[in-house]
């Protein structure tokens, strides 16, 4: 019959499933373990075929755009440890890996103690994203342009990891190893990110440049944290983290070291700026050329350091 010359409708529908903007996701299994051990066992069993679901703002879009191929999503939001958000002025802050951004900035004690962290979590996407997206997810997605990671680096965060070989800890600056890749081994998951208690006369600031005011990916991001002396004229310690200028968010030790080298001055900050520009190894892409990013990272580091010093002096 004539109509057979046209493939049946079902055929067209199946073919459409390979399209980039196909609206269906690949068939997946979903599981919601209640303990870290269960989650680790599932991840260990499935390896690369399983991935963690926390806020889902990255993974669901990646799956739907067929940028990632999985068999199993492990929803960790039923596990107590990854939902923990506790602040103790003496011991510091523990951010469970699945705690959404809004829980951090809506907590007044945390907002007061960690203004630099609040800068970062308040500019991840828009409010709808912040209702879901977690700092842990932002870190594990391992984007070079992750908004919260440079600030975590500047704040000297530690990653707490659970896995089949038992728990371990990593400094946050070593957690991302390449774009989309982390130091997590098979079966391991991020449990929490711990920040040390803020020291006296300390301050932090995070800045990101995007062409819009919100809902965009960083062209460059820079976070600075400083500890000043009692007279607030000298810097005792400083850490600078930068994003979107290398395959992973970077700690720039030379920039931090430059700031502790004498009384604070514009010239001293310029040394830190030069160090950050030297450490930056950006690429050119649709968001900006490598030259532009190298220039921008200096501008942002300068402003982030100035902002951090200002906050430390205000305290």
């Amino acid at each position: 019959m004539l109509w057979l010359a046209e493939p049946p409708l079902g055929h067209k529908l199946n073919k459409a499933k390979t399209h980039l903007w196909d609206d269906s996701m690949k068939d997946i299994d979903y599981t919601a373990p209640r303990t870290l051990a269960e989650a680790a066992a599932l991840l260990n069993d499935k390896g690369d075929r399983a991935r963690i679901l926390a806020g889902g703002t990255d993974i669901i879009v990646q799956l739907r755009e067929h940028r990632r191929d999985l068999d199993l999503l492990v929803d960790v939001k039923n596990i107590a440890e990854v939902n923990e958000l506790t602040f103790d002025p003496a011991r510091g802050l523990r951010i469970g890996a699945a705690v959404p951004c809004y829980r951090i900035y809506e907590n007044k004690d945390i907002a007061k103690a960690y203004p630099g962290l609040i800068d970062a979590v308040s500019l991840v996407g828009g409010v709808q994203i912040q209702s879901r997206a977690s700092v842990g997810g932002n870190l594990c997605n391992a984007s070079p342009a992750a908004d919260t990671t440079p600030m975590l680096i500047a704040l000297e965060a530690t990653c707490h990891i659970a896995g089949p070989q038992g728990p371990r800890q990593l400094p946050v600056e070593t957690f991302c190893t390449a774009p989309g890749r982390t130091a997590l081994e098979r079966g391991e998951l991020l449990v929490s990110i711990d920040l040390p208690a803020p020291k006296p006369h300390s301050g932090a600031h995070y800045l990101r440049f995007i062409p819009r005011n919100e809902m965009d990916i960083a062209v460059v991001g820079a976070g600075a944290s400083v500890v000043l002396d009692d007279k607030k004229q000298k810097c005792l310690a400083a850490r600078i983290g930068v994003g979107a200028v290398a395959p992973t968010p970077l700690l720039v030790p030379d920039a931090g070291a430059a700031l502790v080298d004498g009384a604070l001055s514009d010239a001293l900050i310029d040394k830190a700026v030069q160090a950050a520009r030297a450490a930056a190894k950006p690429i050119s892409d649709m968001r900006g050329t490598a030259e532009y990013r190298k220039h921008l990272v200096g501008v942002l580091v300068k402003r982030a350091v100035q902002g951090a010093i200002h906050r430390a002096r205000e305290k």
Binding site: I60, G126, S131, R132
Partner: peptide, 27 residues
């Protein structure tokens, strides 16, 4: 957009605005 960037799918979940396109119904 169906990709978590335009806001047309915004609903309130537990009193918080969320993009319903970038979460699973199960959640």
């Amino acid at each position: 957009c169906d990709r978590g960037s335009c806001g047309a799918c915004t609903v309130m979940l537990d009193g918080k605005p969320v993009y319903s396109c970038s979460m699973l119904a199960l959640e």
